[in-house]
């Protein structure tokens, strides 16, 4: 019984961690920190797995927890050092290209609610309705956050492709 529960969680963790890494990287701008946040979110999921494992979409629970961890200022000040301790200094691995880094840096300058909304939409492909459910706000609020976030990003990047009227 316990073995099945563990196997269930292990499969969930293996299947979701990489996807979650991209999402949290957009929120934090640091791969090592994102990895730390993702693993921490899965630790918390395991602690509540008896409940979380029964949810129709347990990954949604992990996303919410990971986002809360990632955008917390407390976490922001300390997790970089903790990630360093846990994973060592970032190695000379091939990482995101300068364009992607610039985009993620700009995203990180946005207010947290806009950044999270953009990440849920553009990184994880959630619909406006799903984001509204997940973040517990109205659909119109999600649209406004997407619109404002795109406009702000365009200003930050001086980008040709993003400034646009909200498409509805």
């Amino acid at each position: 019984m316990g073995g099945a529960r563990e196997a269930d969680f292990d499969e969930f963790y293996r299947a979701g961690r990489r996807r979650m890494l991209g999402y949290v990287y957009v929120l934090t701008g640091d791969v090592a920190e994102a990895q730390d946040v993702v693993q921490e979110a899965f630790v918390r999921a395991w602690q509540r797995w008896a409940t979380v494992g029964t949810y129709p979409d347990p990954e949604s629970w992990v996303r919410v927890v990971a986002a809360r961890i990632a955008i917390s200022r407390w976490r922001g000040r300390r997790s970089r050092a903790r990630a360093y301790v846990r994973h060592g200094a970032p190695g000379p691995v091939d990482g995101p290209t300068p364009d992607t880094v610039a985009l993620v840096d700009a995203l990180r300058q946005l207010p947290a609610n806009q950044r999270t909304t953009l990440a849920l939409h553009y990184v994880l492909g959630l619909s406006v309705a799903d984001i509204a459910t997940e973040t517990d706000v109205a659909v119109g609020t999600v649209k406004a956050r997407l619109s404002r976030g795109r406009v702000a990003l365009a200003q930050l990047l001086g980008d040709d492709n993003m400034a646009e009227v909200n498409r509805g």
Binding site: Y13, Q35, G95, T97, Y122, V123, L153, D160
Partner: peptide
Amino acid sequence: MADLEELAGRLDHELPDVAWDEP
């Protein structure tokens, strides 16, 4: 300049394979 619409694909390709803790 990177585009939001391409961000998911870029992250998929560009993020390194990190050494995940085992389950």
